[in-house]
Design a protein around this nucleic acid. Structure first.
Length: 424
RNA sequence: GGUGGGAUGGCCGAGCGGUUUAAGGCGGCGGUCUUGAAAACCGUUGAGCGAGAGCUCCGGGGGUUCGAAUCCCUCUCCCACCGCCA
């Protein structure tokens, strides 16, 4: 959520920055109009309440002295009715303004290139090289089918298309990777391991920005009005919702493994082969709550922490800085990490590392106090995948596949996986 | 799911219709004293809106009243016991 005071004091600047994110500026004007009306009504109501408070005190004194206060009582009662009417108006306008504010996306950071679509994204880093094969590398779905470790037809029978069924060594590989990544981030990178709820309420979904605009992308359990989480970002960022943290506690780092559920409405037929785009997947997520002045440095270290996963596994990847038009609703700046999948001959996004500045903090009520007695300030929130499992496994299968159809296990996880080669 | 008891400032806890602009204690911060510290004493210490005057907030929402932390209704959550279940 944007700061209404910022919108009020710099409307043209806000409009300009939102234009880079393809937001119609009439939305901003609508909010400014409501804001003006809101403040007028509020100050009228406040004045009348002041009068009422004074009169109530007077009445109290008169009654105490045994004098007649009925005329004053009646007069005050009428005043009270007018206040009630005003407050109903006020509440409606506040609600309308709040709902409008919730639909405005975050503004891009000044370092973000302005652009309409992913064509304007910039590759800002690259690690390793595309591996060479002396045979034709297969896509992961062929490797998985051959080894009988990936069974998409049966998963479709059970749930529908877009739901994976891992078996045998692939299921084991996923479990190994989850555990290994959690250890890496918690033991070496300083993140506190968490295991959050997989279903969350509307308030949490609104706090991180999935609601109100992306409801159709989420799975909803209607009887309880709870959503299956699309990412651990939602429960984890909301851990400290409506709290004022002690400044000395910051930065707060959390890592969580959760399954993620996404309806992927409207994306059928697009990159949906195999495990590339599924409705349910596993992910290890990194979340940071930090002081505002540190958030852009924190974004860089967050990115490094996520990259470390791919480096240790020896996977070639590149880092892409998203342009303004490609940023998600809540993000001010975002890097995507894209891992190379040689069988598909494609880079696949395995992580998005974003700085949301105070956008989510305002929605979720995430504050901190610099020192005793200081005014509460909003924290900055960040998150990034560290990393998403299906595409990571795609890259592993396709990168380390061997001519006989088996797959080598990289050194980093060989010990805990318990084998050198993935067979079936 | 049933019955009963709760929800007050960072924490504990009083208040049950009008100096509550929320007592008191703990904790925090500042000061006096001290070589320094502890103890003692003094002061201070919640949030939101508003340009400001000021207004609002005692779990959420609604009601009664000139006036509600206080009375009524309702919801949520917590605790206890019972039932059901992993």
């Amino acid at each position: 959520m944007l700061d209404i005071q910022l919108i009020r004091s710099n409307p043209d600047d806000v409009k300009k920055r939102l234009r880079a994110k393809r937001v119609d500026e009439s939305l901003v004007d609508g909010i400014l109009n409501l804001d003006k009306r809101r403040r007028e009504i509020q100050s009228k109501s406040d004045e009348m309440k002041k009068t009422r408070n004074e009169r109530s005190k007077e009445i109290g004194n008169l009654v105490k002295q045994g004098q007649d206060a009925s005329a004053l009582k009646e007069e005050t009662r009428l005043l009270g009715e007018r206040i009630k009417d005003l407050d109903v108006d006020l509440k409606n306008i506040e609600e309308e303004q709040h709902q409008l504010l919730l639909t405005i996306p975050n503004m891009p950071h000044e370092s973000v290139p302005v652009g309409e679509s992913e064509e304007s994204n910039a590759v800002v880093g690259e690690w390793g090289e595309k591996p060479n094969f002396h045979f034709e590398p297969k896509p992961h779905w062929e490797i998985g089918e051959k080894l009988d470790i990936l069974d998409l037809p049966r998963a479709t029978k059970i749930a529908g298309s877009g739901f994976p069924l891992l078996k045998g060594s692939l299921a084991r590989l996923e479990r190994t990777l989850i555990s290994w990544m959690l250890d890496l981030h918690s033991r070496e990178h300083g993140y506190v391991e968490t295991a959050p709820p997989y279903l969350v309420n509307r308030k949490s979904m609104t706090g991180t920005g999935q609601l109100p605009k992306m409801e159709e992308d989420m799975y909803l359990c209607q009887v309880d009005d709870l959503f299956l989480i699309p990412t651990a970002e939602v429960p984890v960022t909301n851990i400290h919702a409506d709290e004022i943290l002690n400044g000395a506690q910051l930065p707060v780092y959390y890592v969580a493994y959760t399954p993620c559920f996404r309806r992927e409405a409207g994306s059928h037929g697009k990159e949906t082969r195999g495990l590339t785009r599924v409705h349910q997947f596993s992910k290890v997520e990194l979340v940071k709550l930090v002081k505002p002045e540190t958030s852009y440095n924190e974004l860089e270290t967050l990115l490094k922490n996520a990259e470390e996963v791919l480096r240790r596994l020896g996977l070639h990847y590149r880092v892409v800085a998203l342009c303004s038009g490609d940023l998600s609703f809540s993000a001010a700046k975002c890097y995507d990490i894209e891992v190379w999948a040689p069988g598909m001959q494609k880079y696949l996004e395995v992580s998005s590392c974003s700085n949301f500045e105070d956008f989510q903090a305002r929605r979720a009520g995430l504050k901190f106090r610099r020192e005793a007695g200081a005014k509460p300030e909003f924290v900055h929130t960040l998150n990034g995948s560290g990393v998403a499992l299906p595409r990571l496994m795609i890259a592993l299968l396709e990168t380390y596949q061997q001519p006989d159809g088996t797959v080598k296990i990289p050194d980093a996880i060989r010990g805990i996986f318990g084998a050198d080669v993935l067979k079936n």
